[in-house]
Simulated assay, not measured.
Amino acid sequence: MLPQVIILNGTGSSGKTSVAKLLQEQLAQQYLNFSIDSVLYALPPSDLACMMKGEPITRGGYDYAKLVDGYHRCLPSLLDAGCKLIIDNAWIDSAEVDSLMTLLSPYQVCVIGVYCDLAEAQRRELARGDRAIGLAEYEYPLVHKVFNYDFTLDTSSISPEQGTNLIVQWLAQSYQN
Score class of each variant (00 low, 15 high):
Leu135Gln: 03
Ala132Pro: 01
Asp117Arg: 14
Gly113Met: 10
Lys145Leu: 08
Pro76Glu: 10
Pro56Lys: 11
Trp91Met: 15
Tyr71Gln: 03
Ala132Ile: 01
Ala121Glu: 09
Arg128Gly: 02
Asp80Trp: 15
Arg131Ser: 04
Lys145Asn: 09
Gly113Glu: 03
Asp69Leu: 02
Arg123His: 11
Trp91Ser: 15
Ile57Lys: 08
Ala90Asp: 08
Asn89Tyr: 04
Cys116Arg: 08
Trp91His: 15
Gly70Gln: 03
Ile87Asn: 11
Val68Ala: 06
Asp93Phe: 04
Ser105Ala: 15
Ala136Glu: 00
Gly60Thr: 13
His144Met: 05
Leu135Trp: 02
Val97Ala: 00
Leu118Asp: 11
Leu142His: 12
Val109Pro: 14
Gly82Arg: 05
Gly61Pro: 09
Ile87Thr: 07
Arg59Trp: 06
Pro56Leu: 09
Ala81Leu: 11
Glu139Phe: 08
Ala127Ile: 04
Tyr62Cys: 14
Leu126Cys: 00
Pro76Leu: 13
Met101Ile: 05
Ile87Lys: 10
Leu79Gln: 10
Arg59Pro: 05
Arg124Phe: 02
Val114Asp: 04
Asp80Pro: 08
Asp117Tyr: 13
Thr102Leu: 07
His144Leu: 05
Lys145Met: 09
Ile112Ala: 08
Ile87Gly: 11
Glu120Ala: 11
Cys74Phe: 09
Asp98Trp: 01
Tyr71Ile: 01
Tyr140Asp: 04
Leu135Ala: 04
Glu139Lys: 11
Val114Glu: 02
Thr58Gly: 12
Ile133Pro: 03
His72Ala: 12
Gly129Trp: 02
Leu75Asn: 05
Thr102Ala: 06
Cys83Arg: 11
Gln122Ser: 10
Glu139Ala: 11
His72Glu: 12
Gly82Ile: 04
Ala136Gly: 01
Lys145Gly: 05
Ser94Phe: 00
Leu78Ile: 08
Tyr71Phe: 07
Leu67Asn: 08
Tyr138Ser: 07
Asp98Leu: 05
Asp98Gly: 01
Tyr62Asp: 12
Asp69Val: 02
Gly61Phe: 13
Ser99His: 02
Asp93Lys: 05
Val111Thr: 13
Trp91Ala: 14
Ala65Pro: 03
Ala121Thr: 13
Leu142Asn: 10
Gln108His: 15
Leu118Glu: 14
Cys110Met: 15
Arg123Asp: 11
Pro106Leu: 15
Ser94His: 01
Ala127Cys: 07
Val97Ser: 00
Ser99Arg: 03
His144Asp: 05
